[in-house]
């Protein structure tokens, strides 16, 4: 059985550490906040200009001046601070954020990431993704292991080299898919390593669905 979206988020939450400042992307990464262990202090950063992001507001208490980077209404916490977009990306670019968890279209075995543009389709823009992957200390990608094409076929997303336009080069430290977990030695020569399998998933299945080269070092 492959992991569900929730199980992928739960696995990603194991990368959190006490005292971390963390930026979560839209989609499965957002769910990671549901799995912050009790007693662990983690501050969530929203790149539009907030640290210490709280949960969604109660109905009727929405504040149009208080939104996250996905433009959703949210709330503040006693630890919250607000700041400008320049200060926000100063803390991102300057390496002050410990962990960024985000989605991807493709990841290459050397840590290259593509997640913002498909040539020929309407391009919406990269938002803050390029800044996050370039500046945050540790970058974790959470994504489906393969892309499902319209004709029912599957295309690998863990590749030798990305063929979509890049968001960053040699930026990804870890990839969590519905089938397992990989680490990437993004600055060295160590390449990609399969370190965990999802429940009931075999190494052979992963090999069949992965184009990029990887070593195996299961715990």
């Amino acid at each position: 059985m492959a992991w569900t979206r929730e199980q992928m988020a739960e696995r990603a939450a194991k990368e959190l550490q006490d005292g971390f400042y963390v930026n979560l992307g839209i989609g499965i990464p957002t769910l990671v906040s549901n799995y912050i262990p009790d007693g662990m202090s983690v501050q969530l950063q929203s790149e539009n200009g907030m640290l210490g992001m709280g949960p969604f507001p109660f109905e009727g208490e929405e504040d149009p001046d208080l939104i996250n980077a996905g433009k959703q209404t949210i709330t503040a916490l006693p630890t919250t601070s607000y700041f400008s977009s320049a200060d926000s990306f100063g803390m991102i670019r300057g390496g002050h954020i410990d962990l960024s968890i985000l989605g991807a279209m493709q990841v290459a075995e050397n840590g290259d990431l593509a997640n913002w543009m498909i040539p020929g389709k309407m391009v919406k823009g990269m938002g803050g993704a390029m800044d996050l992957v370039a500046g945050v200390k540790k970058v974790v990608v959470v994504m489906e292991h393969v892309a499902k094409n319209k004709d029912g076929t599957e295309a690998p997303k863990l590749l030798k080299a990305c063929d979509l336009p890049l968001t960053g080069t040699q930026v990804v430290d870890m990839v969590i898919t519905d089938l397992g977990v990989f680490t990437i030695d993004k600055k060295g020569e160590g390449g990609m390593t399969l370190v965990e399998l999802a429940d009931g998933v075999t190494e052979d299945e992963i090999r069949a669905k992965t184009e990029g080269a990887f070593k195996v070092a299961l715990a």
Partner: peptide, 26 residues
Amino acid sequence: EKRIEQRTVRKRKEPDTAAAAGGGQI
């Protein structure tokens, strides 16, 4: 008049941690 682009809320009975926007445990 201030507009909201994505109105997201939580039910009053749900614990805080169930909301997707989450929040640090303090």
